[in-house]
């Protein structure tokens, strides 16, 4: 399962591809929604690790428009519930993630992102 929390941490790592290599762009995705237990402490703790714009863009690519473009000042329960859904309940099961810089394609198969590179692509 590629959840958006994981997608927010993955960058292209092809040799020499070091700028504009994040976030990877989704294409041809199949999504499953799976309920997860709401854990506001975890979400608050994770907020500093997130690249917010990348998360908002990715969630919109997947059809969810519940997150505001800027991080709100008050992390109230309504906001945290939307964040919970976007980060942890949307699972990309199949599809492709493309690097915005070098266009390298990382396939997702059975919920597992294939981030392996060929020998000549390794930095």
């Amino acid at each position: 399962m590629v959840r958006l929390i994981t997608h927010n941490l993955l960058a292209c790592h092809v040799k020499g591809c070091t700028s504009n290599n994040f976030p990877l762009q989704f294409r041809d995705v199949q999504i499953e929604l799976r309920e997860a237990e709401f854990n506001p402490d975890f979400l608050r703790g994770f907020m500093p690790k997130l690249e917010w714009k990348a998360l908002v863009d990715a969630s919109r690519q997947l059809g969810d428009t519940s997150l505001p473009p800027e991080v709100p000042e008050m992390l109230d329960d309504d906001f945290l519930k939307n964040l919970h859904h976007v980060l942890l309940e949307i699972h990309v099961e199949e599809g492709v993630m493309t690097c915005p810089n070098c266009r390298h394609e990382y396939p997702i198969l059975n919920g597992i992102p294939n981030m392996l590179l060929a020998e000549h692509e390794i930095g």
């Binding site: 399962m1 959840r3 790592h13 992102p113």
Partner: peptide
């Protein structure tokens, strides 16, 4: 979350 990858390579930038 399982990632098919080598070491932490796809995660190290972030």
């Amino acid at each position: 979350d399982a990632i098919n990858g080598s070491f932490a390579n796809p995660l190290s930038a972030r």
